[in-house]
Design a protein around this nucleic acid. Structure first.
Lengths: 189, 189
DNA sequence: ATCTATACAGACAGGTCTGTCTGTTCTGGC
DNA sequence: GCCAGAACAGACAGACCTGTCTGTATAGAT
């Protein structure tokens, strides 16, 4: 309603809040971080948060939405740099780079699922949508790689992806390399 | 100190509390369930909980300890029913059965990791110990299966295990079957 | 019968969390 | 200069959570 006159200011506070939420939620968990901590980190007022997001749950959902959107953009940019028949494997190069980045400590989507058991939480639907998106991309890339049984191989790569990010959180990037090794073995034969 | 005279009564309340905690923590998450809810479910007094466990964190740790111990017993019993060279693959039969059991909704260990980001939490050490145990068993079973590169194959199977349980929570048991399919392919050649 | 250890019941304190509300400050457009 | 919209600052309510404490009931041992 009042978003025309000062759209920039709007985006500014909203982005500050989202930046702070992103950092704190990913680092310490959604439940462990209270509103006040997000406000302090963002240098924002409580009223601003509730004006822009309406509730903490919606802030969490916005955090997840931005994470998933940016992840899709990064993955597409990274994978599409390879020729079509190499893209399925290239996803696991992306995973290796991701889990070896210094601030990696687990998959935010998996954490959301572990923290928010309530199926009605708005963030869970976004996580499921992200999985559907990845499953579709994998099916494309596996088809382009010339695999014989596309759904079976794509499903297997989905398992490898989940296992790579879950395992790397606790065992280090070794698990991502293990996943890449097996993906290569699965795709080149 | 006073555990001799009425050991049975001791075990009774403690077990009731642990049973209630197990059900509620696994169903709704560790953070979402308060002490009072556990007490009501167990029909116990608050003083009993603090006499036996000392704090909620220790109750959580006891919950994880029992889950991991029982999981090890179940896995060993299930897998050892197969001849040594078939045990690595047999683990994935176990996973399929587990994720297809009606009350399955994710791996409690993965949920603990997602919920408790604090490395100092007593429950996290138990989760890591459980992973080490599984990694060692996998190395044994892979060696007995006659694989050429034992550490590499065992690491790959660890990824498959993690991916199977993580994926099955959201996508259904299909992911566990995908993992078994790939494990078989990896082991029989 | 008494005594002791255990468990139950629940009040209570102290803290934290979300969400609302009031009042003030700043800024950009006229 | 003035005004409207946005953000800041923080008090406040209401709920909830952990952990402590007091008092009572019960059951087994001597």
């Amino acid at each position: 309603m009042a978003a025309q006159t000062s759209k920039f200011t709007d985006a500014c506070v909203r982005d500050r809040l989202l930046d702070a939420a992103d950092e704190l939620f990913y680092q310490h968990g959604v439940q462990a971080v209270g509103i006040d901590r997000v406000l302090a980190e963002a240098g924002a007022a409580k009223a601003s948060l509730y004006a822009h997001f309406g509730s903490k749950d919606e802030l969490v959902a916005a955090y997840v939405e931005r994470r998933t959107r940016e992840a899709r953009e990064k993955i597409v940019a990274y994978v599409d740099a390879a020729p079509p028949d190499a893209r399925a494997l290239r996803l696991f190069d992306f995973v290796v780079e991701w889990v070896e980045s210094p601030d990696f400590h687990g998959c935010p989507m998996q954490h959301i699922v572990g923290e928010l058991h309530d199926d009605a939480h708005p963030a869970r639907a976004l996580v499921l949508a992200q999985r559907s998106w990845l499953a579709e991309r994998l099916a494309e890339w596996v088809r382009d790689a010339g695999a014989s049984d596309v759904p079976q191989v794509a499903g297997a790569l989905m398992v490898l992806f989940d296992g790579a990010v879950a395992g790397s959180e606790l065992d280090g990037s070794r698990r991502a390399h293990d996943a890449r090794w097996m993906a290569k073995r699965l795709l080149t034969r």
